[in-house]
């Protein structure tokens, strides 16, 4: 299995509108996780990026997982709750920046 997390940012999938960061997803967005990286806002998580990435992976934010945004908080629509395969997980938008989702219905 190739570790796409080490891929440089410049090669980010450029498909507009189809692939979104989980941090910017809206309520009701459904899709498949295509990439989980360790690169954005290193000082913004309280732990280093590699640790954040491992925690996300451990919770099941892995490439290929099905995801749907099911709830949003009241203030700035944060945190969010997602349905991740067959479980529900809550997280903050700022910790979800490096999770990329290919939205259903989008052409790749």
């Amino acid at each position: 299995m190739n570790d796409i997390s080490t891929r440089p940012a410049a090669e980010a999938p450029p498909v507009e509108g189809a692939i979104v960061r989980l941090s910017e997803a809206s309520l009701g967005d459904v899709g498949t996780i295509v990439d989980v990286r360790a690169e954005s806002s290193p000082d913004n998580h309280g732990v280093n990026l590699e640790e954040l990435q491992r925690r996300l992976l451990e919770f099941g934010f892995v490439e290929g997982a099905r995801i749907e945004v099911i709830h949003e908080g009241a203030i700035r629509r944060d945190p969010i709750a997602v349905r991740l395969d067959d479980m529900r997980v809550a997280l903050r938008r700022r910790d979800a920046e490096d999770v990329y989702i290919l939205l259903d219905g989008a052409k790749t």
Binding site: D43, H45, G46, F59, P79, R88, A90, L91, R92, D95
Partner: peptide, 12 residues
């Protein structure tokens, strides 16, 4: 200084 730990929680 710095931010709080990530909030990652299963909603059982």
């Amino acid at each position: 200084r710095g931010t709080v730990e990530p909030f990652l929680m299963e909603l059982p």
